[in-house]
Nucleic acid binder design. Sequence first.
DNA 1: CTGTTAGCGCATTCAG
DNA 2: CTGAATGCGCTAACAG
Lengths: 327, 327
Amino acid sequence: MTVSRVVNNQPNVRKETRERVLQAIQELSYYPNSAARILSGQKTYNIGIIFPREEYIVTRPYFIELSVKLEQKLREHGYHLFLGSIRKDSEETDFYQLIGEKKVDGLIFFAPKIDDKNLSSLSADRVPFVMVHGRSDDSHCCFVDTDNKIGTQQILDYLYSLGHRRIAFVTGNLQELNARERLETYKKYAKEHKSVFIDDFIFYGDWSLESGYKAFNSLYLRKKRPSAIFFSNDQMALGGIKAAHDKNINIPKEISITGYDDINYASFITPSLTTVNQGTNKIAEKTVEILLDNIYNPQKYQQIILTPQLIIRDSTALYSDDPPSVF
Amino acid sequence: MTVSRVVNNQPNVRKETRERVLQAIQELSYYPNSAARILSGQKTYNIGIIFPREEYIVTRPYFIELSVKLEQKLREHGYHLFLGSIRKDSEETDFYQLIGEKKVDGLIFFAPKIDDKNLSSLSADRVPFVMVHGRSDDSHCCFVDTDNKIGTQQILDYLYSLGHRRIAFVTGNLQELNARERLETYKKYAKEHKSVFIDDFIFYGDWSLESGYKAFNSLYLRKKRPSAIFFSNDQMALGGIKAAHDKNINIPKEISITGYDDINYASFITPSLTTVNQGTNKIAEKTVEILLDNIYNPQKYQQIILTPQLIIRDSTALYSDDPPSVF
DNA sequence: CTGTTAGCGCATTCAG
DNA sequence: CTGAATGCGCTAACAG
């Protein structure tokens, strides 16, 4: 039909005809049938978004904030967003279905596990996808990430500059690269500043409020207490702050706290949180750009590492020699 | 094909044949093409979810938590979730497209505005949808909501029982029924307990952290200060708590604070928040049930109002006569 | 510039 | 119980 041409803004339609069609479309409030279009055209204009685990959607607000930005960017390009997730129980996934059934043109993976087999197999199948906060040696993998070394270093340098020498560290889920890199940077820093750290200052968390809470309590029981705690994300830092409040420990007077991500709440809790902003706008923009690029040019793989930024707020202060209150 | 029968679990296929097909499906890792299926079968097995405004996705974590539950429930029924939203600028919407193009079988609307014209027109077009936290006089509208009167009453009764008589109230966005009902219940309560309230104790908020922050500061400047503030959602309560912290005002000793929704953070801030739990699990379950029912039986419209539950935590305490500290 | 033909992959209907 | 014909609504390729 000529209608198709008009709908798709193609040339070679007389002006009058075009207008006539347009008017008819108006009157009938006609919409082109998506399924037919997809079937015929082989493009769905849908993107699926995959959360590392179901509970993370709630657990990690950072990814929600990112999702919102992604949805906006995608819509600017005429794409819709599908919500997918990896089921909690077992490793069962439903994105194979999404891809297999051709419900989406591509996928976005949040913080996948290191060496996730699903991803390698997707890559082998040449399914377009990009990892956000993940990496791969495979040059046929797209990813967007920020530099964890720089971010972590910024926090540590800042704490150091405040005079802190007993800096504890709370990891995220070490199945994820981000968590691992932050930990490694911390360890390296410790090695380079021998005088300052104590072995027992690492707590293995899982990104959640609860684990942050536990981390604080656990670290605070050490014989020699930390004067600062670096939580690998804001969520855990919030848990830590809660624990401090419960024990009537003043932040930042008695102990400094930092997070990572700069989520919405970071500036709205008390005390407001010193943290690292990863730049969700830029991340979303790049992710969409790279993904669509890969969809249209299947042999084009881009990998980007952006630079995060330290955000100084009120949860950190100069190291003070006052012995922390005993509880 | 016989394949179709097998894929759709239809009878009248010899066992051997079925198994042979199944095996072939395995080997070829065959997936039925969704577009073709939709085109032929007229059902997409997709549901669209509509947020009242774009920024609400970030602003109102309650709806995120609800979305997650909805996604789970929908998946149990073989449905996928599409993310839609109403654009910030103007009233432009994209769910008409979603429906028009037949990308979804139905829609879920979060907290629509009262008398939303979009909804009446959808209803007239017999598009299956259900409002979550919305109502309608139109008996051809599905909705799931909780009883705001009961929830609000519970909070007020509790505060009253603690001895509070100067209870301030912070509204949500009054374009939404929830906000309005909570306000009206408050006003009615005030009327019924004449001795206690002061005219100037209502602050008009918009659900956001920021408006909660402003609300606290504003209310606390009143000549006669409130001894308790009831925020219409947790998010604003968090803002209020932040404001109190900034002014070194102790909660709950100097002032009691309550929220509404019982979001994740409610139990994790300091002090943990007395609030109202609306039962997201049940809401999600009912929403999906009603929506699918309406899709399969177009003349079946269900409307449900669930009962919320008071959650008592640490942000509320007995009224004390100590004059609040002056700042 | 406009219309015709064919096929995207499935499900429904009807023969075999 | 199994297979062949037809159409879902659109677009690409071609003919007029």
